[in-house]
Design a protein around this nucleic acid. Structure first.
Lengths: 222, 222
DNA sequence: TAGATTGTTAATCGATTAACAATC
DNA sequence: TAGATTGTTAATCGATTAACAATC
C-alpha cells in the first residue's frame, strides 16, 4: 500500500450515491424517534422504522466512521448531529432559484427548507412581467443580473426551475457566478464542466416509469 | 430450459429501473431530432445527443426487442413510437392528484403533462378553505370523497403532494380506490401492499446530496 | 460473565461497459 | 462486395446482503 507521492490525500473510499440518499432517510427517522423520546436505537430498529435493512444501515455509516457501541446501539441525538454534519445540514446553505413560475414559486415556499438550513437567497426570472414582483418577501430579479448578484451572495447551489429551452443558459450563468451544484427540474440534460455536480429531478420521467410498471403488474395479475 | 408447469408466462428478463428512466431521455432526444428533420440515427448519435453511451442505449433497447438495422441504424419516428408504447405514453393516463397546496397546484399545471398523455382528472385536499376552489378548470374535491370519485374515474396512478403526516392515509385511500402506482412527493416512506409501485421524489434529499458533494469538491479542489 | 449488537470482510447480486459475430 | 452498425454475449465494475469476529 505505497502511496504515490502525487496523491497527497489518502483517497477515502468513494461514497455511493444511494448511501447519501439514504442518509437523509435515517436523519428523518432519527428526528422522529428523538421527538418521541427514544434515546438509543439499534440498526434493527432503524430497519423497522426506515425500511432499510440493518446491514445496509451499518454499511452506509461505515463510510464515515464509527457511530455506535457494540452490544448497545446508537445514541439518537449524537447520530442525528453527525449525519447532519456529514450532509452539511448543520450550517446555513444559501441557494439561488432560477425560474419563478408555478414550480419555482412552489419550491421557494416548500416547508422544511429552512428546517434543513437551506435558504433561498435570490429568485431570478427572464419574464419582464414578473421582475420586481415578490415571492416570500423576495423580489424577483432579472436573470441577466445573476452574476452580479451572486458576486455578493456567494451561493454555491442553484435550483433550475425553468423550461428546457432555458436550462443550459441558466446553468452556464450560475456556474460562471461560482455555483458548483445544480438541482435541475428542467426536462433536459445539462452539460457542465468537471467539478460541478448536477442532480436531475424529472416529474414526467417518474410518471413514465410508473406508467410502465402499471401494465407490467396488470400482465402479472391477469 | 424446461418450464415448470406452474409458471405459465415465460418470465421476461426484468427490466432494470435505470433502463426505464433512460427510455424517457431517449424519447425526448428522438422527438427533438425528429423535429429537426433527422430520419435515421445510430446509437453513436444518441450517445452524442442524450449523453448515454451507445452500448448502454443498445443494451437498454435489447430488453424490449429489436429496433434497428445493422449497418443502418434506427428510424427516428418508428423508434419514438415504440418507446412511447413501451412506457404507455401512447394512450391517455388518468391521474389523481392529492394535495392542492403550492406544490400540487404547480404540478397540475406542469407543461408537458398533456403532451405525454398524462391527464390529471381530479384534485383532492382536506382543507375546507380550498374545497370548491378551482385549479386549471377543476374543482378541488374533499379528500374523503376520493374513493367514491375514483369509482367512476378509474384512475390507476395517483400523485401525493401532501405533508408527510398525511401521506400514508392518502396512499391508503388511493390504493383502496384502485390506484396501483403512486408518485410520492411527501418526505416520508410509504407502506404499500405488493403489486403497488411507489416512486419517491424528495426535494430535500436532492439538496442534501448536492450539499454533501459541495464540501467534497472543495476538499479536492483545496 | 453472557447476551447483544456493532463494524467489517467476504459472497452475492445486478448493472454497465467492452467486444464481436451477425447482418444490412 | 466492403463498410457500418446492430443485438448479444462475456468481462468488469459497483452496490447490496450475509456472516462473523470484535467488543461493549
Amino acid at each position: 500500500m505505497v502511496q504515490t507521492p502525487t496523491e497527497d490525500t489518502a483517497a477515502l473510499p468513494k461514497v455511493p450515491t444511494p448511501t447519501l440518499e439514504r442518509l437523509t432517510t435515517y436523519l428523518r427517522c432519527l428526528v422522529d424517534l428523538g421527538a418521541s423520546g427514544v434515546r438509543t436505537i439499534s440498526s434493527a430498529q432503524i430497519e423497522e422504522h426506515a425500511g432499510v435493512s440493518a446491514a445496509q444501515f451499518r454499511k452506509d455509516l461505515s463510510y464515515f466512521g464509527e457511530f455506535g457501541k457494540p452490544g448497545v446501539g446508537y445514541q439518537v441525538g449524537e447520530l442525528e448531529n453527525r449525519i447532519a454534519r456529514i450532509l452539511q445540514l448543520h450550517k446555513l446553505q444559501p441557494i439561488l432559484l432560477v425560474g419563478a413560475g408555478n414550480l419555482g414559486s412552489a419550491l421557494a415556499s416548500y416547508p422544511g427548507l429552512e428546517e434543513h438550513k437551506f435558504h433561498i437567497v435570490a429568485l431570478f426570472d427572464t419574464d419582464p412581467e414578473k421582475i420586481g414582483k415578490r415571492v416570500l418577501g423576495m423580489d424577483i430579479i432579472e436573470f441577466s443580473r445573476l452574476g452580479e448578484i451572486n458576486e455578493v451572495l456567494q451561493a454555491r447551489i442553484a435550483i433550475l426551475a425553468v423550461p428546457a429551452s432555458a436550462a443550459q443558459a441558466a446553468a452556464d450563468s450560475a456556474i460562471q457566478s461560482g455555483v458548483r451544484a445544480l438541482l435541475n427540474f428542467a426536462p433536459t440534460p445539462l452539460k457542465v464542466p468537471a467539478g460541478v455536480v448536477v442532480r436531475h429531478v424529472s416529474f414526467l420521467q417518474e410518471l413514465a416509469v410508473l406508467s410502465y410498471h402499471l401494465t407490467e403488474t396488470e400482465k402479472r395479475g391477469q
